[in-house]
Structure formats: structure tokens, C-alpha cells
């Protein structure tokens, strides 16, 4: 029964294991590589000025200023888009789960959500732009929010659908037995029980929204001023990165790297934040 490691099948087993671990290290390593590249190139140009000031005259030729306009613009765009998406996705998820759990219509709706989720944001952007032209709108914060909501809706709804699906059936049955109507059940019990999951879904969509460039490219426009009105154009961080990198001036490009770092930090904060929040809130739910 002693092992002969040089038997063909044992060699193959060891080789497969080694290649798998190497692949895993490659995937994890590329995350490390990305973060290291962004941090090491972005950090030198990241100054206090970058995050507290708007672009001054000649900013794009290397003169003074920062990207506060883009930071604020991105936060506004993503918050607005997330809020709007939440308004629709929560009811859809709850309705899917409480009334359409196994029906054919429920399956179609889920399929449609999966398909929406797969549509690239550039297509949403182009579609949003045609709508704007048809309605006579200009590129603005509002238009950007609308298109981002489109991008985020399927992400958020799918995540919430999953969350609501994992909700313990007994709890719902108990609530129904106590005489609540189905609607009350979904609103109270389900929502409270599912709060951590919902927060995670919202932050997931927010993170996706804030990093998306292709959808806001034509719809939100770009400006060096701080966003003040829903009907005015607004800057956004991904586009700030893109525009700064397309200049020939090294100083401006350096600031582009710094802007990418700022965006990365925001996204990482959102990601870790959602982990932390859901871990904390999870303490109060029944599992």
C-alpha cells in the first residue's frame, strides 16, 4: 500500500495541483500588480490640492488645480443613479420573490434581468444619448444619473433577488400565520431580515456606477466647475482620468494617475465598507 509517487497517475495529480495553485497565484498576483502599479505611480502626484480644488486656468497644461469637480461629480452621479435604481430594484426583487417565486413570468423577468446585466455600458450610453437628443436635453447631471441607473438596475436587482431568496421561509410563514398580509410581510419582516444583504447590493451597484465611464461619456458631459444643478453638465472621475491621460504634458498625465488612485481608493472603500457593514448588521439577523 506504500505510495509510489512516480506512478503516472500520481505525477499527473501533483502536476495538476501545482498548475492550479500557480493559476490561483497568477490571478491573485494580477490584483496585487494592478494595485501596486496604481499606487506607486499615483501616489507621488497625489496632493492635498488634487482633492480640494477645481481645475484652474491652464490645468490641462500642467498649471495649478485639482479634480474636486470630478470627485464630487462622480459621487453625485453614482449616488443619484443608485438611489434611482434602488427605487425600482427593491420592489422588483420583493415582488419576484413573494408572488412570482416559481412562475413562468418570474423566470422571464429573471432572464430579462440577466440579459440587461450583460448589456455593455457603452450601449446604454449611446441609447441614453439618442434619448436625450429626441427629448431635446443637453448633457447634464440628470441625464448621467438616468443612464447610470440603467447600468446599476440589473446589478442591484439580481443581487437583491439572491438576498431575498436566501431569506428563511419559516420566518415568512410565521409572519403570515400571525395574520399579516403578504405585502406587510415583504415590507417589514423581509426587509429587516434582509437589510445586510440589501446594503451589500446597494454598495455593489454604487461601486459599479462610480467607476463606469462609457455610460456617462456622452450623457453627463464634462465641466471644470463644481456640479450645482441637475440640468448642468458635470465632471466625473473616470473621465477626468481619461482626459488627463490624453494630454501630452507629463505633469498632467501624472495627475491622471493620481486621479485613478483616488477612484481606486473610493471603490476599495466601498467594497471593504460593504463587507464591514454586512458583517456588523448580520449579528441581528436570524440564520
Amino acid at each position: 500500500m506504500l505510495k509510489n509517487p512516480w506512478k503516472r497517475r500520481h505525477i499527473i495529480e501533483s502536476l495538476v495541483r501545482i498548475v492550479m495553485i500557480l493559476s490561483f497565484l497568477a490571478v491573485a498576483g494580477s490584483l496585487g500588480l494592478i494595485l501596486w502599479t496604481i499606487i506607486s505611480r499615483g501616489l507621488p502626484a497625489l496632493t492635498w490640492e488634487m482633492v480640494t480644488q477645481t481645475p484652474k486656468g491652464g490645468f490641462y497644461m500642467g498649471k495649478a488645480g485639482g479634480v474636486l469637480n470630478a470627485i464630487l461629480g462622480s459621487l453625485y452621479l453614482a449616488s443619484g443613479g443608485t438611489l434611482l435604481a434602488l427605487l425600482f430594484s427593491l420592489p422588483i426583487a420583493l415582488y419576484l420573490q413573494t408572488y412570482l417565486e416559481t412562475s413562468a413570468w418570474g423566470r422571464y423577468v429573471r432572464l430579462a434581468l440577466d440579459v440587461l446585466w450583460g448589456i455593455p455600458s457603452i450601449v446604454y450610453g449611446a441609447f441614453g444619448f439618442t434619448l436625450m437628443i429626441a427629448l431635446g436635453l443637453r448633457a447634464s447631471l440628470l441625464a448621467g444619473i438616468l443612464v447610470l441607473a440603467l447600468v446599476e438596475l440589473p446589478i442591484m436587482t439580481r443581487a437583491m433577488d439572491e438576498v431575498v431568496r436566501r431569506m428563511p421561509r419559516d420566518l415568512e410563514q410565521a409572519a403570515l400565520a400571525l395574520g399579516s398580509t403578504r405585502l406587510e410581510v415583504s415590507l417589514r419582516v423581509v426587509t429587516r431580515q434582509m437589510l445586510p444583504g440589501i446594503v451589500t447590493a446597494v454598495l455593489l451597484a454604487f461601486g459599479r456606477g462610480i467607476g463606469d465611464a462609457a455610460s456617462v461619456l456622452f450623457t453627463a458631459g464634462y465641466t471644470d466647475r463644481l456640479p450645482t444643478s441637475l440640468l448642468r453638465p458635470t465632471a466625473s472621475l473616470p473621465l477626468a482620468v481619461l482626459f488627463q491621460l490624453s494630454t501630452p504634458y507629463p505633469e498632467v498625465r501624472e495627475r491622471g494617475y493620481a486621479s485613478a488612485l483616488i477612484l481606486t481608493i473610493i471603490v476599495l472603500l466601498v467594497s471593504f465598507g460593504s463587507r464591514w457593514i454586512s458583517a456588523r448588521l448580520n449579528k441581528y439577523t436570524i440564520r
Partner: peptide, 21 residues
Amino acid sequence: PVLDLLAAIPPVVYGVWGLLA
């Protein structure tokens, strides 16, 4: 978390990484 972070990194940051590395 490694996969979650890889999925969370925005396209434009991937672009910057591509450009620099």
C-alpha cells in the same frame, strides 16, 4: 475578497494599469 476586488476595480483603472504596465 480577491475576486470581489478584481471585479470592483473600474474599467478606467484597468486601462491605466494597461497603459503603465
